[in-house]
């Protein structure tokens, strides 16, 4: 009996110790800086002067009076909605395509899908600005969607798909590879169709990949920043200005660092709630072997 209890506490202790080193690094890079900066949201700091005054919740109240914040919020939500749907379908499709080929071809396909990931946002923007301006004009006779307020967001998302689908493709792909092969064999003996196998084996066992990809794609599109900045700088006329860009402008350009920090905090809180809900939805469905 005594031995048993000793074992349990030791396992528990081990569980914490396993987490510790990573957590300490995490504290150093994210947690501590985050808490060091949080008080700025309650000040009138302009980002330049050495001193500032505490203003309580004024910055948070100010958000409701800020008429300019509506468009960035809307844009970020549109980014997230289209981005998640298109991104998930696209990268899952890519992973399945790569998986459907025999070893050598599959390797080639995966490498091709992965290479664009290595291009910076600036260079991606350069190539795609050209494709939109010249290729679209010559092939379809339409003007560049980047110059059109209604089409600019989907156009940037398409650039993003080219540039970063490789990441989710890889996660889905390793998810596919993690599925025990004998499950498929058993299903084949039972006479299941391809569709049935996909629905009853692939999808459920891919849930860990879904929880990662969907959650992170959602929040990364909500925080869309770099690609948009390189492609349009938020234009034309603010039609692609996202909330992250708006926060950046307030923090470093408009000399409203306190306000920018407050918006960032509220926005982060919103992302955390949403991300947690989505993550929980998938985590619950993860199958433990």
């Amino acid at each position: 009996m005594k031995k048993r209890r000793g074992h349990v506490t030791a396992t528990k202790l081990a569980a914490y110790l396993f987490l510790l080193p990573g957590f300490l690094f995490f504290c150093f890079s994210i947690l501590i800086p985050f808490f060091m900066g949080i008080h700025i949201a309650f000040t009138d700091w302009n980002g330049i002067n050495y001193d500032y005054n505490y203003v309580g919740f004024q910055n948070f109240i100010g958000m409701f009076k800020d008429q300019r914040i509506a468009q960035p919020i809307r844009n970020s939500l549109v980014f997230a909605l289209i981005g998640v749907v298109a991104g998930t379908v696209f990268s899952l499709g890519m992973a399945l395509l790569a998986n459907s080929r025999e070893a050598k071809a599959g390797k080639f396909v995966r490498t091709v899908f992965f290479i664009p990931v290595c291009f910076s946002a600036v260079l991606t923007a350069f190539i795609w600005k050209f494709i939109y301006k010249e290729v679209f004009f010559n092939a379809f006779g339409i003007k560049s969607p980047l110059g059109n307020p209604d089409w600019v967001i989907p156009a940037i998302i398409l650039m993003g798909l080219w540039n970063s689908s490789g990441i989710n493709m890889l996660i889905y792909y390793s998810g596919l590879k993690n599925i025990p092969t004998d499950l498929y064999e058993a299903a084949m003996i039972d006479g299941a169709s391809t569709m049935q196998k996909f629905r009853t084996i692939t999808l459920p066992l891919l849930t860990p990949a879904f929880s990662v990809c969907v959650t992170l794609t959602l929040t990364s599109y909500l925080r869309e920043f770099a690609m948009t900045l390189s492609a349009t700088e938020g234009g034309p006329g603010g039609a692609s200005r996202t909330l992250a860009i708006y926060v950046y402008e307030n923090l470093y350009k408009f000399s409203k660092a306190g306000y920018g920090q407050a918006v960032a905090l509220v926005f982060a809180l919103f992302c955390i709630l949403l991300g947690n809900a989505v993550s929980r939805f998938f985590r619950k469905r993860e199958v433990e072997m």
Binding site: Y132, S144, P236
Partner: peptide
């Protein structure tokens, strides 16, 4: 030009 807002 045809599409000035696509010109960088």
């Amino acid at each position: 030009g045809d599409d000035p807002f696509a010109v960088t």
